[in-house]
Design a protein around this nucleic acid. Structure first.
Length: 800
RNA sequence: GCAGUUGUGGCGGAAUUGGCAUACGCGCUAGACUAAGGAUCUAGUCCGGGCUUACUGGGUGCGGGUUCAAGUCCCGCCAACUGCACCA
């Protein structure tokens, strides 16, 4: 047979669709497997090779599971709300609904051409009413439970996209979508209290099977620290200046305080401040700096001493100056710090610049030169003297602070509450009504979905308000509580909303009573294996874990954690080794590969190209090598024999089954394919193969190259489709040859190889080793001191 | 700076977890078949020396160590990648 992919690929794709072999069955008696991939954003550019790689892993596992007798749920959908579509819609003056539908159709066709075994009956689209109805429902539930609040706040604002961004979406001070500089702007912001779930999100990590680096990233993102809040009094005023510190043990070393430039204390007592002009000038300078510049100036500490306000160190009564400096952020802790220059490098740099006292309170370093951040015994600290610093002093100090009523133990998180509203058209309307008398009132559940109104002109408003604000008929409404005239909220939800729970909807995609039926959830959840990109580890995954924990708490899902296991693929780089990008012109279009070399070639290559988790450059020649492999496989139908296989070939078959099966489970797809290639080479060496063995080979290959496997399976008269055939099993005893080759070392250097019966005794092995000419030569007239034999591994002769 | 990961042929990468380093693929070299080869097949390919099929030296980023035996374990460097970052 020739590898006629142009004929066989459409043929089998059609058969799979007609027979519905990939449809998941609710409540089947078989064991279940829920494999999930991150659903795509249906951009106009169509699919990227990165999508192929991201989906191929679970695709292979799902196909293997079906052959192993599992009832498999392997769904796909579209995360279709979002800015790129909206911006494109504005640019082309086409409604985003039209663009979205067009893109989804394009994506669906492309996905089908690659032969992914998705269950197409369960497709979800986050922009459809019957989906976003439940996104709004979850929001309202959170609102009811007090997890939603509105606040005026300085927010990250992208002047180009004209939207408020979450911290996650503005990392490094750049807009995640258009990469322009983010500015701070005062806005009405809807927040979700994700911080209330910080501890649950941390604890949940102990129950799931995520790679260590992913867990670590999430832990860092949540950024929990334990320490203490301490009140410093300020001379002449009532208000206390509250600080947060992780090092209450160093309180006696505090020689000054620093507060954030925008700290409210300054304005409240501006009459007492002698150098307000200087402070205002410094503030103006800070505002000009971009986030990037602020992080660049790590060494040269800048700041201004506040003339007229003096703080008092609560543990020893010493008067200490207060500064403002931009290295203290309003957004973390209390926006004020106690500075311990002896034991914190930033404080040290600052103290040196401004000539402030530096006191040693922990022995072990030389504070003449730099801050000592290590551990040691406490000194100059009255009742703490002699204690070990962290271990004992922290507890002792907190005890003291609590006794005096000037401090308390506390925790802080780097993670902030989730800014949840966008002033954009293409998103889920936030189902809230503003009533003059009742305040913010949730839209009644029975009125959901709150439909996104149709609109001709969906450009963002100039003042940064939502386009929906221009539709009077949408804004005007009655208060659901008191019935008086009220106004609707006009902001929409961020793109992360729909993706925070989409995996639940696959389980029951058409349910109009609830987001998913509990019995079905009980059957399918949790997701057994979720694959996606590293870039979603700290945002999408944390958001969706948060939502899931919430849904668990209100009793609508049956597991606290949504994803039992997570893995991540590495990028496919351009042939030049750089990240693929249109501007560099190094983008590979997967559909070009499908039409020129076939989907099976593409699928096999993206998994063969390297370690699945590591970024690997695309290589055309290497890809053609996979094509050659499939052609050589196709030719096997011309090498059929009636003869029984040899003993040694039988070993190779069993070895291959074991290796391929294990490698797929461990995501070592490259070596799984390499093993199949090696077995193919062996078949060519033998020159023929019988039907039964070829069947095994095809089954092992089927998850990678399913079209060719089906075609050949049919050609050799295999029963049914290979997609539903039984995965081959192996006999452990038959995976090893009766005789094996092992190396013989003399003083640790390999000198020869010998063939020994498997599991033979030491005596025999040593005897055979010593018969070798090269071994004898290497020993020469030296005396043998030791003979080491590790069964089936190695012989080492130690001679002196 | 902190956290995590990784350094192996000309290239992508293997190595059953301490036991024959370089599997598999690409590329390259030679040959075969061809009108032709950017197709296919055969052989070779870690580097060096050598009487080029029973020979020999070196070799997994660098320097030490443990061990009969180290790509793998330990200590100290160097480099790269990813994420976070004046986080108090």
């Amino acid at each position: 047979m020739r590898h006629n992919f142009k004929k066989i690929e459409p043929k089998w794709q059609e058969k799979w669709e007609q027979t519905g072999v990939f449809k998941a069955v609710d409540y089947s008696d078989k064991p279940k497997f829920y494999g999930l991939v991150e659903f795509p954003y249906p951009s106009g550019a169509g699919m990227h090779v990165g999508h192929i790689k991201a989906y191929s892993s679970i695709e292979v596992v799902a196909r293997k599971r079906r052959m192993e007798g599992y009832n498999v749920l392997f769904p796909i959908g579209f995360d279709a709300y979002g800015l790129p579509t909206e911006n494109y819609a504005i640019k082309t003056k086409t409604h985003p609904r039209i663009i979205t539908d067009r893109n989804i159709e394009k994506f669906s066709n492309q996905l089908k051409k690659v032969g992914f075994s998705f269950d197409w009956d369960r497709v979800v689209d986050t922009t459809q009413e019957d989906f976003y109805r439940w996104t709004q429902w979850i929001f309202l539930k959170m609102f009811d439970k007090g997890l939603v609040y509105r606040d005026k706040a300085w927010v990250n604002y992208c002047p180009s996209c004209k939207v408020v961004l979450s911290n996650e979406d503005s990392q490094g001070g750049k807009c995640d979508i258009c990469h322009s500089d983010v500015v701070q702007k005062s806005k009405d912001v809807w927040y979700l209290r994700i911080t209330q779930y910080a501890d649950k999100l941390l604890e949940g990590l102990e129950q799931v099977d995520y790679p260590e680096n992913i867990k670590q990233q999430q832990i860092n993102w949540i950024g929990k620290s334990t320490g203490a809040f301490v009140d410093f009094s300020v001379k002449g005023i009532e208000d206390k200046l509250e600080i947060y510190t992780t090092r209450p043990d160093t309180l006696f070393g505090v020689t000054f305080m620093v507060i954030a430039p925008e700290h409210p204390l300054i304005d409240k007592y501006r009459d007492m401040v002698a150098n307000m002009d200087e402070i205002e000038a410094y503030r103006a300078e800070c505002n000009k700096k971009t986030e990037f510049e602020r992080t660049q100036l790590v060494k040269d500490k800048t700041g201004v001493k506040i003339d007229g306000l003096t703080a008092i160190n609560p543990v020893n009564g010493k008067e200490i100056p207060i500064f403002i400096a931009d290295y203290v952020m309003m957004g973390y802790g209390t926006g004020a710090i106690m500075a311990v220059p002896g034991h914190d490098q930033r404080d040290y740099d600052f103290a040196k610049t401004f000539g402030i006292d530096i006191i040693e309170v922990i022995k072990g370093g030389n504070i003449e030169e730099c801050a000592y951040t290590g551990d040691g015994q406490m000194v100059n600290s009255e009742y703490l003297n002699g204690y070990d610093n962290k271990k004992d002093s922290i507890a002792r100090m907190i005890e003291e602070l609590e006794k005096l009523g000037i401090g308390r133990a506390g925790v802080q998180y780097k993670m902030k509450d989730w800014a949840f509203n966008r002033q954009r058209y293409w998103g889920e309307p936030i189902p809230i009504v503003h009533c003059e008398y009742c305040g913010d009132v949730g839209v009644p559940y029975e009125e959901l979905p709150l439909r996104l109104p149709d609109m001709e002109d969906f450009e963002p408003g100039q003042g940064g308000e939502s386009p929906l604000a221009r539709i009077d008929s949408f804004v005007a409404c009655k208060c659901p509580k008191c019935g008086r005239d009220a106004k609707r909220e006009t902001d929409t939800m961020p793109q992360w909303a729909g993706s925070s729970w989409y995996y639940l909807r696959y389980i029951d995609p058409h349910n109009d009573k609830c987001l998913a039926d509990m019995d079905k959830l009980e059957y399918w959840m949790p997701v057994d294996w979720y694959n996606g990109g590293m870039e979603h580890v700290t945002r999408h995954m944390i958001y969706s874990r948060f939502w899931h924990h919430f849904l668990y708490d209100i009793g609508v899902v049956n597991t606290p954690e949504p994803y039992a296991k997570r893995s991540a693929q590495g990028l496919i780089l351009g042939p030049d080794g750089d990240k693929m990008s249109k501007s560099k012109g190094n983008v590979i279009d997967p559909l070009d590969i499908v039409s020129e070399f076939g989907a099976d070639t593409l699928r096999t290559y993206v998994l063969f190209m390297g370690d699945y988790g590591v970024a690997t450059p695309w290589n055309d020649s290497s890809m053609k090598g996979c094509k050659r492999f499939l052609e050589r496989v196709a030719a096997l139908t011309d090498m059929l024999t009636e003869e029984e296989h040899s003993k040694s070939f039988e070993t190779k078959i069993h070895m291959t089954i074991k290796k391929v099966s294990g490698d797929i489970e461990n995501m070592k797809f490259n070596t799984a394919i390499a093993t199949l290639m090696a077995l193919l080479n062996e078949i060519y060496n033998v020159g023929s193969i019988n039907k039964e063995d070829l069947g095994i080979f095809l089954k092992l290959m089927a998850p990678f190259a399913p079209h060719l496997a089906e075609e050949m399976w049919e050609a050799i008269g295999g029963e049914g489709m290979i997609s539903t055939a039984q995965w081959p099993s192996y006999d452990e005893a038959k995976t090893v040859e009766a005789t094996i080759e092992i190396g013989v070392q003399v003083n640790g250097k390999v000198k020869a190889t010998i063939t020994i019966p498997r599991d033979c005794d030491k005596e025999t092995a040593i005897k055979l080793a010593l018969e070798e000419f090269r071994v004898q030569k290497a020993i020469g007239d030296k005396t043998i001191r030791k003979e080491i034999y590790v069964p089936n591994k190695i012989v080492n002769i130690v001679a002196k």
